[in-house]
């Protein structure tokens, strides 16, 4: 519960942050909301030599619609996302998901960029980003979500690369995210998201593998006119989730099917 010693630097621009990361080397880490990184440091599971605090960078917490896209800045906090009228109107599922991330403390501190960059399979935004074909924008390039999440806690980001924003399509049709968990502030044991985009269902799953999952087989079955219940049977196709103390692999697969069915049925 006591982190190892580390250096600390505060950046006031993305450029400065990148320079600091370059100078401090591989063992330096970006610090955003700190609600994933600091718990790991306290348990000494992460022992970065240095932290580059990006919380002082102005203008990285924007939330705005440009054309048919919703741009969410890397430093937009969960609380901003779930209370934003723009998000509620242009991508209500994102506002609803943000409202259910962790507890008040987590929502006051945690950021869009942090969740995306952390690449936790239990994170909720990555599922939405993947199924909605969002783009992850960094100081260097734009990475489509489908190329971004590589493995557990592993993304396409380079060591000195900083997420600046995530660009989602505007979609305000029927949608539902069901997060199955024991306690209100817990991560999803399994999560299932359904969103209609241009008349077609998009379906995504949280915490059923090392990365977020897009349930293509379910989407295809629905496109062919299958009933939600039938289509949802495909939610576990190809899944090989790891078990943990809350759920066996078999139970997770079962939940993927049940929750997918419920998400589609309850979408509005």
């Amino acid at each position: 519960m006591i982190p190892a010693a580390f250096e600390y630097a505060k950046a006031s621009s993305v450029d400065e942050a990148v320079k600091l990361l370059d100078r401090l080397g591989e063992d330096a880490k970006v610090l955003a909301g700190g609600h994933s990184l600091i718990p790991l440091m306290r348990l000494r599971l992460a022992q970065p030599k240095a932290l580059v605090d990006i919380n002082g960078i102005k203008g990285l917490d924007h939330i705005e619609v440009k054309g048919s896209k919703l741009h969410v800045g890397a430093l937009a906090r969960h609380v901003q996302i779930h209370s934003s009228q723009t998000v509620k109107e242009s991508l209500p599922i994102l506002a609803e998901v943000a409202a259910e991330v962790g507890d008040n403390q987590v929502r006051n501190m945690g950021t869009m960029g942090g969740v995306i960059a952390h690449g936790d399979a239990a994170g909720d935004y990555p599922t939405l980003a993947l199924m909605l074909d969002a783009d992850i924008v960094t100081n260097k390039r734009t990475i489509p979500a489908r190329d971004f999440f590589k493995d557990i806690f592993t993304t396409a980001l380079a060591a000195n690369e900083i997420v600046t924003e995530v660009v989602f399509p505007v979609a305000n049709g029927p949608h539902k995210y069901i997060k199955f968990r024991r306690r209100l502030f817990d991560w999803a044991i399994v999560g299932a998201a359904a969103q209609k985009v241009d008349g077609h269902w998009r379906v995504g799953l949280t915490n059923v593998g090392p990365t977020p999952v897009r349930a293509k087989a379910v989407e295809d079955a629905l496109a062919k006119g299958a009933k939600p219940e039938e289509a949802a049977q495909h939610a576990s196709d190809g899944l090989n989730p790891a078990g943990d103390l809350r759920a066996s692999p078999e139970y997770k697969k079962h939940l993927a099917r049940v929750l997918t069915k419920r998400a589609i049925e309850q979408a509005q």
Partner: peptide, 12 residues
Amino acid sequence: TFLDYTIPSMNE
């Protein structure tokens, strides 16, 4: 940890 040793909170 309290992630895995799940004490219910007031919500539950």
